[in-house]
Nucleic acid binder design. Structure first.
Length: 347
DNA sequence: AATTCGGGGGG
DNA sequence: CCCCCAGAATT
């Protein structure tokens, strides 16, 4: 056995050894059901375990099987996802559930190569499902793995680049335990999220410190290298709430922009009503940070008399807007910004 | 390769 | 204020 191979084996053995002494009891670890594992992995993309946990329970209870999810209306799935963000995850989840149930007759894809074809399933998620549910030897590379490997092996390749992704995936697939790939994958992610954390990691108590490159070179704060280019743009949203009796005009957002499929309000420009009826603006501005946009929203309100209800209905029809009874608002999937506004109004 | 997709937590 | 989080799709 080459020295390289035995060093790799020592690394994975220590990772698994640490994991067995410090296991977290997470609900998706108590099953091999690929549906539940898939569900958990989609929820946890770019999402902390603590934030995703209540959503995992909600989806598991409302949709215990892929059939239940497949037969649910998309509006309900999006409403259940409300507040978690990256809503294409929910739409892709529902799309794939329908595909698996109705096209594949409920037979869940069971290999990395099949799983990665699913919408919303990339290299990380395909590796996670194939190893956890089916025991395939396929290493996960998430933010935790990037960090642990970059520090331990002293790799300074930009983890946000395609070169970095290729390089780290190749290394991870050399390190993964052939006997227990799923447990190794769980172990290295847990190690990264609880021991080898981004800031102020607990190096003195780390079982791998003696052979860790970054620790020995005092480069913990320099690794991993991540070159971030995203710049945040300011954006104004000036909403107009058009009310007619107890009905409000709602707009379902279309693709190609933020919050696809969710409901908010028309914006104040280009409406035939606010010029003829007094529109009242709410005093408070709402600031909301997305990953790439800094939103500032204002809300105005205009009341349309019942005599013009038919004209309003026709205008909504041409615009693709919906007149929604107040008691139905809670069932619409809405962005957090809108939920915040409604909460302030007592909804 | 660069940009676009949410929302929350921690230093 | 910054960065990060069990990333992936699109351009």
């Amino acid at each position: 056995m080459s020295q390289k191979l035995s060093e790799n084996q020592a690394f994975s053995n220590q990772i698994i050894s640490w994991y067995r002494q410090n296991p977290r009891d997470l609900p998706w670890r108590n099953t091999h059901d690929p549906y539940k594992i898939w569900l958990s992995e989609i929820i946890l993309q770019q999402t902390r375990v603590a934030q995703g946990m209540p959503y995992y329970y909600a989806f598991s209870e409302n949709y215990p099987s892929v059939q239940d999810l497949a037969e649910a209306p998309e509006s309900e799935v999006l409403r259940l996802w409300q507040g978690l963000g990256y809503y294409s995850r929910a739409r892709n989840l529902h799309f794939c559930a329908k595909y698996i149930w109705f096209e594949l007759k409920g037979k869940f894809p069971s290999t990395y190569d099949e799983l990665i074809k699913l919408k919303g399933v990339g290299s990380y998620t395909a590796a996670a499902i194939s190893s956890f549910a089916f025991g395939e030897v396929r290493a996960v590379v998430d933010g935790n793995v990037f960090r642990v490997l970059a520090r331990y092996f002293g790799i300074s390749t930009d983890i946000a680049s395609g070169k970095g992704k290729t390089e780290f995936e190749a290394l991870a697939n050399q390190l993964i335990s052939r006997d227990n790939p799923g447990e190794y994958n769980q172990a290295i992610m847990d190690f990264g999220s609880r021991m080898c954390v981004p800031k102020n990691p607990d190096c003195p108590n780390c079982p791998l410190k003696s052979s860790c490159f970054a620790f020995s070179k005092n480069m913990i704060s320099d690794l991993p290298v991540k070159i971030n280019k995203t710049k945040i743009k300011d954006r104004a949203l000036n909403y107009l709430i058009i009310r007619c009796g107890n009905r409000w005009v709602w707009k379902q957002r279309s693709s190609g922009d933020i919050w696809t499929g969710l409901f908010d309000f028309p914006e104040i420009d280009h409406n035939p009503f606010s010029s003829q009826h007094p529109a009242q603006q709410y005093p408070k501005n709402y600031k909301h940070i997305l990953s790439h946009q800094k939103l500032t929203a204002t809300f105005s309100e205009v009341e349309i008399p019942e005599q013009e209800a038919q004209k309003l209905e026709e205008w909504c029809e041409t615009q693709g807007y919906s007149l929604v009874e107040e008691n139905h608002i809670e069932y619409l999937a809405k962005p957090k910004l809108i939920v915040n506004f409604l909460t302030d109004q007592g909804f």
